[in-house]
Design a binder for these strands. Structure first.
Lengths: 231, 231
DNA sequence: ATCGTCAAGTTGACGGTGTCAAGTCAATGC
DNA sequence: GCATTGACTTGACACCGTCAACTTGACGAT
């Protein structure tokens, strides 16, 4: 809309900031790429001249980051919503990871901008993403289920989850399983069980295959029964 | 260098293509960002006019992809070099994953361009990366150490490894362990062991924490001895 | 030896981009 | 009523990818 705007009164400059963010958000949503977020496009859509954006954001990148961070509130909300009433810490962690993946795939553009781009320092989006997983991991450690430094374990889990969703986002043409949920499930199970194991066996690499296969067969025979009963 | 070029003779047009690729490679290396790869900069450095690049590459993106794919030969070479003479399939897989991570961190710009960007189809770089891990995984399956669909297991492993290195690349300011090798080790152990376990326990989620902790304690007590002896 | 041909490169331009310096203009405080 | 000030605009700069049209120069054939 190129409709005329009545100039805001002194003190109401903040209102334009929100309008700019909304216009930017709409652009991202419609185009599905951050390349569509042009200062000129944003300005045109807000009904304002291009350099006016600079009154509220120091650069295009700052605007891009700000508009992408907006949806992070939703991540916080989903995390809170799904974390309650899950007594078992390991199941809570798995739930947390699933919410994480779902959030990333629901907001691929924003996730890509904040987590898959060279960011000078550490992006606030990344810190938030990690924190939720780290909290759930720490709970497992406190409960005696996982052993080791919670932060390191959480980084491992985060890596697995991020790798999964970022590949799904960046390489949609790869021959993934028809349902991306299947891959996410696999990664969650793998990362969860792997973390549980990796923090118990000694640090010097993966045990030899013979040992691995033999011991695992014993363990999983038991699990096959129990998990079937209680799941 | 703006030095004059003697125009190539007919049939020697391919030579310019290589010079362009080299110039582009140097630009990426010096700047550490693909944003420095400007058609004008490439042309200037090659001693040629800007549109001449279009005789060999249909677009800037095509040139960028081509120059990044160049280092993939090195990945192939490293894989072949390190894969030989590792008899234990599980150790070979772990070795393969380590080489993968090392390669990615040694070529962050190229890795980012080919794997961390929205690519219409599936990028050849991604396919290659996956293939090496998939081969090593398939060997483990054939050896009876891992069970399940090799492709799915490999995707899980790939996710974990890619997540690890892509976060290290894109979020260098995050509070990672001082030595990135430590994180890589953790992820490899975690992903490897997790894959070994996840393809054995039934599909319906992670076992309840009580079961998990109890069984794992039994397993890992044995491993602590054996792995210490044979590692 | 000269000419036509044709590949190889160049010139110049177009529309688009982020960004900045200077100017405009209405509402406010005195 | 006037100066001030914040909000916004105008106009420009340098750069970008890309394309159409033009020039150049080496070659084979005559």
């Amino acid at each position: 809309m190129g409709a005329k705007r009545t100039k805001a009164r002194p003190g109401e400059g903040e209102k334009l900031r929100d309008e700019i963010l909304s216009a930017a958000d709409a652009l991202l949503g419609e185009a599905g790429t951050d390349e569509a977020l042009t200062l000129r496009a944003v300005a045109r859509r807000t009904g304002v001249s291009t350099p006016s954006v600079y009154a509220h954001f120091p650069s295009r990148d700052a605007l891009l980051e700000a508009v992408c961070l907006r949806v992070w509130d939703e991540l916080a909300h989903r995390m809170r919503e799904h974390a309650v009433e899950v007594a078992d810490p390991m199941r809570a962690l798995s739930r947390c990871a699933r919410v994480y993946a779902r959030f990333a795939l629901d907001h691929p553009v924003q996730y890509r901008v904040l987590l898959m781009r060279p960011s000078g320092g550490s992006s606030p989006g990344a810190v938030a993403c990690f924190q939720y997983l780290a909290d759930a991991t720490a709970t497992c450690v406190r409960a005696g289920i996982l052993h080791g430094e919670p932060e390191v374990l959480a980084m491992g889990l985060w890596s697995a989850m991020h790798g999964c969703v970022s590949l799904l986002i960046a390489q949609p043409g790869f021959g993934w399983p028809e349902e991306s949920e299947a891959l996410i499930d696999t990664v969650i199970r793998m990362a969860g069980l792997g973390t549980a194991l990796a923090c118990r066996v000694p640090r010097d690499a993966i045990p030899p295959s013979a040992v691995l296969a033999e011991d695992l067969d014993g363990v999983t025979a038991g699990w096959a029964v129990r998990a079937g009963r209680t799941g």
